[in-house]
């Protein structure tokens, strides 16, 4: 029971000559909310995308819900293991990336129905429940283009939750939203953390959200986790000058 939900070990990733991740280790326990922050180019998004192998790391390994995958060539077996690992990760993108040709409900049903092969009746009930949870049940039959950015992102959260993932990965979920729509998405995420004890890794610049919801904050700087701690530690007494400088700039 005490085994972490996510275990990242020695993650390295380069794009050409640029080394973006220089050895990242992280363990995340069930129900924990980890906020990852730092300047753009610090590697925080790349780290998140390495957890479900949207970026293939050069070295290191990731384990999610007992499925462990190490860096290596894309053999048939490894690709299959990556797909298995992905079914335990719910991913929410900056640009929502809903499937435009499907209705809202079909978007949410797609994963459990097609990937997990669950029965349509159960998936429909679960999906409607999730859409109700994010306040989008009345839009179930609409196509995504008719929704605002905030509404689309809430549907995208429901779509990720429909896989009943062990961990939810949020990649700057409010960065593409108009300011007045940010709140509705953060409120849904806060409810996930508080009411449902969802395990979450959140890359975000929303320091108010971090202060309120995070159990742990990790400051990324030039490809390493320079400093981590509780929000009280980070906001109250950051140990590194880089952390202090960044927090002073964004708050």
């Amino acid at each position: 029971m005490s085994a972490p939900v996510v275990r990242v070990q020695g993650l390295h990733k380069s794009f050409g000559d640029l080394e973006v991740l220089k050895g990242i280790d992280m363990e995340i326990d069930s129900g924990e909310v980890v906020v990852v922050f730092g300047r753009s180019g610090s590697g925080k998004s790349t780290f998140l995308r390495c957890i479900n192998f949207l970026e293939d790391p050069d070295q290191g390994s990731v384990e999610v819900a007992g499925v462990a995958v190490a860096a290596g060539p894309p053999t048939r077996h490894r690709r299959k293991e990556i797909r298995r690992l992905r079914t335990h990760c719910g991913m929410v993108f900056q640009q929502f990336n809903l499937f435009p040709q499907m209705t809202v409900l079909d978007n949410v049903m797609e994963g459990p129905l097609r990937v997990k092969g669950e029965s349509a009746k159960e998936v429909r009930d679960l999906s409607m429940q999730l859409l109700a949870d994010v306040g989008m049940a009345d839009k179930a039959d609409q196509h995504p283009i008719r929704l605002s950015g905030g509404q689309q992102q809430r549907v995208a959260i429901a779509r990720a939750l429909a896989m009943r993932p062990a961990v939810m990965l949020f990649d700057e979920p409010t960065s593409a939203l108009d300011p007045e729509l940010i709140h509705e998405v953060l409120a849904v995420m806060k409810r996930l953390a508080d009411a449902h004890s969802t395990t979450m890794v959140v890359v975000t610049h929303e320091m108010g959200f971090a202060r309120e919801v995070a159990n742990r904050m990790c400051f990324f700087h030039e490809g390493v986790i320079l400093e981590e701690g509780t929000p009280e530690q980070m906001f109250g007494s950051p140990q590194r000058p880089e952390t202090k400088k960044f927090l002073d700039a964004v708050i």
Binding site: N52, R86, F93, N97, V115, M163
Partner: peptide, 17 residues
């Protein structure tokens, strides 16, 4: 858009799916 490929991959879809 490439985001569609990423969203499908993130759900654990195979190439054919």
């Amino acid at each position: 858009p490439h985001g569609q490929t990423e969203a499908a991959d993130a759900l654990g879809m195979s190439y054919g799916q």
